[in-house]
Nucleic acid binder design. Sequence first.
DNA 1: CATAAAAGTTGTCATATGACAACGTTTTCA
DNA 2: TGAAAACGTTGTCATATGACAACTTTTATG
Lengths: 190, 190
Amino acid sequence: MIYPQLEQYLRRQTTIDDASLLKVTSKFKPLKTKRNEILCSIGQVCKHFYFINEGCLRLYEIDDKGNEVTGFFALEDSIMSAVPSFILQKPSRDFLVSLTPSDLLVITKDNFLKLTETVPPFREVYNKFMEFAFIHSQMRIYSFLGMEGIDKLRWVMEHEPKLLNRVSSKAVASYLGMTNSTLSKLRAQL
Amino acid sequence: MIYPQLEQYLRRQTTIDDASLLKVTSKFKPLKTKRNEILCSIGQVCKHFYFINEGCLRLYEIDDKGNEVTGFFALEDSIMSAVPSFILQKPSRDFLVSLTPSDLLVITKDNFLKLTETVPPFREVYNKFMEFAFIHSQMRIYSFLGMEGIDKLRWVMEHEPKLLNRVSSKAVASYLGMTNSTLSKLRAQL
DNA sequence: CATAAAAGTTGTCATATGACAACGTTTTCA
DNA sequence: TGAAAACGTTGTCATATGACAACTTTTATG
């Protein structure tokens, strides 16, 4: 067991024999990051995928007005990347950063792709990640398009309570599509 | 060539030999729908995936206030389903309907899953569909969370111009997260 | 530990958009 | 074809939220 957390994650997502498991995990390398360390910058082509042992990653853009908009948060025991850039292998429109000091495992894009082609259970894991990511994005669209601010806040409290403890107000606001000060006022309202 | 459009779609998405292609396409059955025909209703567990030869499908929810919120439109030469329900095999929170009379090919969930397990190129096609769907949802989140109405409208005009010709104003408004009347006023502004 | 920078709070004010209603137009289908 | 329903437009009004600023609190770092 080189990386027990990653192994458990893979076994939870799929049925995988020990040989394949080793084939997969051996391609990952440990990486410790600092607070606000940039894993992929705007303009870079993202060449890595990450497994989070501990910590928190954030994917976000800067919109036309210069405001940050958060696309995705990922916490421990999940995988993450600057997905659009990783998939399309085009310059990223997003930053991928570790919000807190994090304990990660990294795999290169080439190794990642080779594994999806040669280890069917790994392809399944990747596919499940995409399914989850899509369903999650759809939930956000449904929840945030119509709702008023106070209801969006309640929605996150109910559906992603961890986030509110782990992430700065500023980042939460950028995730809910409102300004800092509006979030602060809504919180005061309860 | 039983279903030339479907075959072309598959060949465009992946490299697939004729035997596999036949294995896949033979599991689809033609289905003609009327305008506003319901393919999956709220509460139903979605058991099918669809390929669109011609027409337009819409996935939408009814929010707490009774307003429609559109999660996804799909036009010809793409595949679609009530994805969250299909994946999780839980009662759907969405309606999946054909906005216009449509010419579809349908495959059952069981056959679909079997194909993803036994025909690797088909798994790849499904995976690419999920990747596209996720990237598209993320684009909407980035574009719609911060933007004002007029900019959202401009965004769709630029990125999905087909939609505005094919789809009712009401449906577009529910896709942009605004009311009918607001969209109408914004259109008047140009 | 001290200082600066970042984050969060709160207030005022302007405005984009929702709610609602009245009305005209288009579509549906019996 | 004609009646009824659905759709789209436009107006008025109320309000949630953004913009901005002043201030306090927390965090980062030498």
